[in-house]
Amino acid sequence: MVNITNRSGWGARAPRNRSTTTWASRTGFTVHYSAGPPTQTPRQIQNFHMDTRGWADVGYNFLVDQAGNVYEGRGWLVVGAHAAPHNTSHIGVCFIGRDGDATPAAKAAIRGLYDEANRRAGKNLSRSWHGGLSGNSTSCPGADLRSWVRAGMPVSGGTTPAPTPPASARPGTTAPAWPGPILIQPPVRHTQTCRRWQTRMRERGWRITVDGWYGPASERVCRQFQTEKRLSVDGRVGPETWRASWEAPIT
């Protein structure tokens, strides 16, 4: 999992509006650069996009600095404003800096975001750079990052093919037999069933601690998942929710 500084962590302004998409609609991953000094902050870039360009928010889905720190922009499934007409289909990631400023740490972080996007999508997204997308005549992200993307976004000195998500993380995987007992709280109980379910939810991209304890945080994830999948929303992990955790599409 990629360590991402959330919006509140970098002092983001609230967006004026937002629209979302689905993983089924995501087909690509696009690399950009800010073309400014690497000392820029995500907030400065957001201010420029909102106040000068009149956009609803920072244009990118994520931003990465020279040290390899990752910052949440619009996030995984919010439509960006980085490369029209590809904003719905492509996740936009911006390196904060100019051509030649990208460090190995920055490239590793961008590659980590790409691998995480593939894991969440349950498929391999196409790799691209801003100027390589149809309808986008621009030198962004500069010669260095453009060559790096063309080479397959290698890290540690070698070209690493984009991994195929493990079978356990793909939608449509047959659920293991329901082991029981039903997960419910209070009281907070520790079970292997809970640990296995938490692990599966983590594989699907949910932020959940895998510790085997079914408490308020796990119940909150359960309710959110049940709402998303249009199941009975009761906060209990029983046979129906268990099965959906493996077999329902990742959205």
Rank of each mutant, 00 (worst) to 15 (best):
G212V: 00
I45K: 12
S147C: 06
T5D: 07
R196F: 05
L125N: 04
S128Y: 03
R170F: 07
A14L: 09
G205S: 12
P186K: 00
A83M: 06
T160M: 10
Q44D: 09
H190Y: 04
R7I: 08
A151K: 05
A244Y: 15
V64W: 02
L125S: 05
P181C: 02
V221Y: 00
P239H: 08
W242E: 02
R230K: 13
R223F: 11
R150M: 07
S147N: 15
C222W: 10
C194L: 00
C140I: 05
H32K: 09
F225A: 00
E116T: 07
R243A: 15
H32D: 03
I45F: 14
T173M: 12
N136L: 09
E247I: 06
G9F: 09
N69T: 14
E72P: 08
H86I: 05
Q192P: 15
H90Q: 06
P176S: 01
G131M: 03
Y214A: 00
A217Q: 09
P249A: 00
W148T: 01
L63P: 11
T173F: 11
R18L: 12
Q44E: 15
A244D: 09
A109R: 04
A151I: 03
G59V: 02
T191L: 00
P154Y: 08
R230G: 04
F95L: 03
H190F: 00
L231S: 09
C222G: 04
S89V: 10
R204D: 00
G92W: 13
T103A: 09
H190P: 09
C94Q: 11
M201R: 08
R220W: 00
L77E: 07
T5R: 07
V79D: 10
P239A: 13
C94D: 10
A56Q: 05
P166G: 08
K229M: 13
T241V: 11
Q44F: 13
A169G: 11
H130S: 13
R119Q: 10
I184Y: 11
R230Q: 12
P165H: 07
Q192R: 05
K123L: 02
V58P: 10
L231M: 14
G75I: 02
A109N: 04
A151H: 08
T191S: 13
P186C: 08
